[in-house]
Design a protein around this nucleic acid. Sequence first.
DNA 1: ATTGTGGTTTCATACAATGAAAATTTTAGA
DNA 2: TCTAAAATTTTCATTGTATGAAACCACAAT
Lengths: 267, 267
Amino acid sequence: MSPRRASSEEKNNRYNVRVLDRAINILLTLADGKPRTLQEVSDAISLSPSTTFRLLATLSCYKFVQKDALGRYSLGLTCLELARAYYESNDLRKVALPELEALRDEVKETVHLAILEGTEVVYLEKLPGLHAIGLMGSRVGGRAPAYCTGLGKVLLAHLKAEEIEDFLRKQPLAPFTEKTITNPETLKCELEQIRKMGYALDRGEHEAEVRCVAAPIFDMHGAVVAAISISGPAGRMEPLDANLGLIERACQAARAISEKLGFRPRA
Amino acid sequence: MSPRRASSEEKNNRYNVRVLDRAINILLTLADGKPRTLQEVSDAISLSPSTTFRLLATLSCYKFVQKDALGRYSLGLTCLELARAYYESNDLRKVALPELEALRDEVKETVHLAILEGTEVVYLEKLPGLHAIGLMGSRVGGRAPAYCTGLGKVLLAHLKAEEIEDFLRKQPLAPFTEKTITNPETLKCELEQIRKMGYALDRGEHEAEVRCVAAPIFDMHGAVVAAISISGPAGRMEPLDANLGLIERACQAARAISEKLGFRPRA
DNA sequence: ATTGTGGTTTCATACAATGAAAATTTTAGA
DNA sequence: TCTAAAATTTTCATTGTATGAAACCACAAT
């Protein structure tokens, strides 16, 4: 699904502690959800079974990982508990939540809050729409490629020109649907547009049946730190460009959140 | 709120890797949500600033922790991502979810899924009721004391007698409300009752205005591995004992989940 | 400017983490 | 059920890594 993190030793800052590096690699490896035996883990991170065993034992004893009945390791409960802590103390999320709830209740469609992380979007909050069970694949803590989602495009649009070039160099523009933008030049134009308009549209570029409007959130320094979106099935959202009420409402909510973060509209 | 984990070095299994131990203690320390400066962290875990610095640098580089504008550390995005992985690959939760949704839609009240962890209950899933905004303090990944919640009591009830004694030795029965059971003997009787009846009631023992019905989930070996509950405001739930429909529905959902886990009703 | 505080880097040293290999347990096969 | 093989757990000697002290630096407060 999302581009997997390369095996190991990729982020060697000068001061990294080796054991920690290794232990973290175990966790990241297990983050794909596949339970592994000791051997499989030790293969995955290229360490001797004895070392791997000791690392897993330590992680295990704090419930960072757990052993299932078949002796295979997977992530443990502590991961969930740390996430709750992160989640609750996340200012952006806390500030945005009331606005997002109001927005969701008003438009009845699914509302997202997300940030840019590398070449991907990470969802910080998802409020499912009030219609039937959502067929949207997004999950809190989950990722999606930036170039083909409303949230992603609006976040990319506000990067520096050089960062955008950088992004294009790193990220191949694979087509998810008919509508996915796969030409770098086209994407750059689109981003330009988005920056000027102040919002992004997604006409099924990632999931064919999903349409979405996204708007950026600014912090007190005027930097874009996150984005929100309203998404729903094509049936209810089209014609998207003409749906000015929805677009306006998304932008307004984003502005309200920005102001709560200390953003001054006319700087 | 929840009893804090003691400072450090408490879980010294023979084979623990020291650095890892220390790094994990940093994470657990930061899990209270309070951002800390380098010094505060190094005090909290009783290590020299240089060592702490290096550990934090490593954690930081994998986004396990992050530094805010004031140079204070708090938990980072990776915690959220690991949790998502844990969450999605959690079989119990996956199996239970459809049942829980059906249950929630039917009774319109808040539905929980939880497990016992030490002397506390950890919520794995929370489906908010369909009435107004919930005043319930529970959160996925969060904890609550076992002895004064429906979920907790039903989970305790199915421990071995010796484990219950153990629990009572460790856990002081502090009163949260008028109704909290603070006498160990009374609690033991209550647990006995619960085991016989097959479900637990909470008449505001933790949060004064909340009532709750909880039922146990069994795995294929007949061991109790989790519990579910229906909770709501006293106004709508009382008279609780007489609310046989609700009780029956909770037990039925729990049984359905148990069977999906391979539990054979009449063994 | 001056001092002080907290953060970062350097460095020599001790000892903690390591892998090889032995011991043990578990699994598979007959 | 017993035997062989595989995987896990433990031991152990060695080395190189994590360590804290102290030097250094950035920056705030005076």
